[in-house]
């Protein structure tokens, strides 16, 4: 078994377990959303194994990042339940949160203080956060971009009509008063 196959099984297992966790988690919606993150991240990892780096990055940024964060916001705004976590747990979370935020801030500040790095000479590989976009597109993965406006332009445009229909529809149903 090569390392790729082994990694595939690991991530596939995590994806399935995350999906099951989301399904079976009736009580705690937030934990369910975290399970969803696990599934989304492992799907992203599987995309990397398939060689679709651009798709993997989009998967992590859009699904695991943006969409799940919106989910969490909605859950927390609509369903404010203080009994999920005890006050001492909440205090623990706050301390953890402040520590992590402080660490990230420290990293940023040291990076800025040391001067912004020049772009790396080798665009190949994930050298770091600096050149992620360059790495993605230099590997020939620009084809996803051209396909969207080439072969798949029609599905792309139909999808935009679909989103329009969904927006109009949700406004019609949810608007407080129609005159």
């Amino acid at each position: 078994m090569t390392i790729e196959v082994a990694l595939f099984y690991v991530f596939a297992l995590v994806a399935v377990l995350g999906a099951l966790g989301l399904l079976l988690n009736f009580r705690n919606l937030v934990a369910g959303a975290i399970c969803l993150v696990a599934t989304m991240v492992s799907l992203g990892a599987i995309y990397v194994l398939l060689g679709a780096y651009f798709l993997a990055a989009v998967q992590i940024m859009v699904y695991a990042g943006a969409i799940v964060v919106v989910f969490l916001f909605v859950i927390m705004l609509l369903n404010i339940r203080t009994d999920v976590f005890t006050p001492s747990q909440q205090l623990l979370f706050k301390i953890f949160g402040i520590l992590i935020a402080g660490f990230v801030l420290f990293q940023f500040l040291t990076a800025i203080a040391g001067g912004l790095p020049a772009f790396p000479t080798t665009p190949d590989g994930f050298g770091g956060y600096r050149d992620i976009a360059g790495a993605l597109f230099a590997r020939g993965d620009a084809r996803e971009g051209t396909q969207v406006v080439g072969d798949f332009i029609l599905p792309f445009e139909i999808a935009s009509l679909l989103l329009l229909a969904a927006i109009v529809g949700s406004v019609v149903l949810a608007k407080r008063r129609l005159e």
Binding site: P155, I158, L162, G169, L173
Partner: peptide, 28 residues
């Protein structure tokens, strides 16, 4: 419009998008 896509679709992608574009306005 969704129904038109659906009846003219010769690809699984347009078939699916046609079905969704047909269904979502009708749910509403």
């Amino acid at each position: 419009a969704g129904m038109m896509v659906l009846v003219a679709a010769t690809d699984l992608m347009t078939l699916f998008l046609g079905i969704e574009l047909m269904s979502i306005p009708i749910y509403v």
